[in-house]
């Protein structure tokens, strides 16, 4: 249950108010008819699946109903930043070293 800062409401709200909509910054090609089948297939079907920093599109569904972006660490579930549509992330996989270390473990 994450605690998410909505950049439009300006507050932290419970995860239950939000829906995730997949990878952020997938731009629809401006001229789809000029795309090759492979390019169009990339746009439709291919997404990143990083172990680490990821940019995601979310909607504050029970709230302002605005779409916005979250930079989230997929291992630690840290939310590193949230930002409005049209803005770019300030934190990327390159700017943030992966803080998690591999360890052998017992789970109970």
């Amino acid at each position: 249950m994450m605690h998410i800062f909505c950049p439009y409401c300006g507050e932290l709200r419970e995860e239950e108010e939000f829906h995730v909509k997949g990878q952020a910054h997938i731009e629809r090609p401006k001229d789809p008819e000029a795309c090759s089948d492979a390019e169009w297939g990339d746009y439709l079907f291919f997404r990143n699946n990083p172990r680490g920093v990821h940019h995601e599109l979310w909607i504050h569904a029970v709230g302002c109903r605005k779409y916005f972006n979250i930079t989230r660490h997929t291992v630690t579930y840290e939310i590193l930043e949230t930002y409005r549509m049209g803005e770019q992330p300030t934190i990327t996989g390159e700017t943030k070293a992966d803080p998690t270390t591999q360890a052998k473990g017992v789970s109970a």
Partner: peptide
């Protein structure tokens, strides 16, 4: 989805 801030040519 992208976050188009510029008008696209078809629009």
């Amino acid at each position: 989805m992208s976050d188009a801030t510029t008008l696209d040519p078809q629009a």
